[in-house]
């Protein structure tokens, strides 16, 4: 599946031999999609770019060209700066954990026993739940005084824990929720990669009396290095766009400690009725995403090197 669907394969369109010359009616194959693509992706992208130079009232439909004012305000806005910082922090909290924990679980569960299969099912199960259900569960876990976490900490005599109300811990608490929700994906990707490693390599290592630690560092990880990079990039792209958990668990608070960039766009555009300003923020998000996607493309084209 990896090879078949890799971006590299997608780029070699020119190599496909011709079946016969094309006719206009055959454009109907691609026309429906291209129409949707232009109307619902390309056009809004351009429109958003234009809106970012306007004062735009989404609800009154009123627009006025104001040049670079939105961008000037945006870059001097402390809340936006905070949102950028928070987003990067969130990526730093989650992505390495996804990679390390995903690999750990995959290593432990890479065997054909009934319990390993059960645990694989369990770790992946939370993945299919929607963000609203996940946050319902975790808000109940973090509830002050009566949450699961507080109940657990009561055993150790630790009182009055309110993570989501504490600016030093709220973002980490949301990160934990996110990892609980999404660990299944890195796990299965690592499992797939581990199963590609030929058994002979391990046998050789065993003959050399390599310690498990050495085997991990010198055999396993180099063999699946490409997957490690891939998981990292997939998670970077996903976590940069974090929104649902934050909107539902803290709405950006306390003391602005959890407001992410998408949350900022949402609030500015829809809560605060400043859609032009929100569009400017969305352009910044877009640029960051382009860089991340470029990175992914670059990595997948150079897969032989990994």
């Amino acid at each position: 599946m990896t090879d078949m669907t890799s971006t590299a394969a997608g780029m070699t369109a020119a190599a496909t031999p011709r079946l016969k010359s094309w006719s206009w009616t055959e454009l109907l194959f691609v026309a429906p999609y291209l129409l949707l693509y232009v109307v619902f992706l390309v056009y809004p992208l351009g429109l958003g770019f234009i809106m970012s130079f306007q004062y735009f009232d989404l609800f009154a439909g009123q627009a006025e060209f104001i040049g670079l004012e939105n961008y000037q305000q945006l870059f001097s806005d402390r809340i936006f700066q905070g949102a950028v910082v928070n987003t990067f922090k969130f990526v730093i909290f989650t992505v390495p954990t996804f990679v390390a924990l995903g690999l750990l679980i995959a290593l432990a569960l890479n065997r054909q026993t009934w319990w390993a299969a059960t645990l694989r099912t369990l770790f992946f199960a939370s993945n299919v739940l929607s963000v609203t259900i996940v946050t319902l569960i975790w808000r109940a876990v973090y509830l002050p005084q009566k949450g699961l976490l507080q109940n657990f900490l009561d055993v150790f005599g630790i009182q009055n824990i309110a993570l989501l109300q504490d600016p030093n811990w709220a973002l980490q608490a949301i990160a934990v929720t996110t990892i609980w929700w999404g660990i299944g994906l890195p796990m299965v990707l690592f499992l797939a990669a581990l199963q590609q490693i030929p058994g002979e390599i391990y046998e050789a290592a065993e003959l050399d009396n390599a310690s498990p630690w050495q085997t991990l560092w010198h055999i396993t990880i180099p063999s699946i290095w490409r997957t490690v990079v891939l998981v990292t990039i997939i998670q970077i792209i996903a976590q940069f766009q974090v929104f649902g958990q934050i909107n539902l668990m803290t709405a950006g608070g306390p003391n602005n400690s959890t407001r992410s960039m998408v949350q900022f766009v949402y609030e500015a555009g829809f809560r605060q009725w400043t859609a032009g300003f929100a569009s400017a923020a969305a352009q910044v998000l877009f640029v960051i995403m382009i860089v991340a996607a470029g990175l992914q493309f670059w990595v997948s084209r150079r897969k032989q090197e990994f």
Partner: peptide, 11 residues
């Protein structure tokens, strides 16, 4: 200071 309304009501 009480973290949320539910706790405030309970307390």
């Amino acid at each position: 200071l009480i973290p949320d309304w539910a706790s405030a009501f309970t307390g």
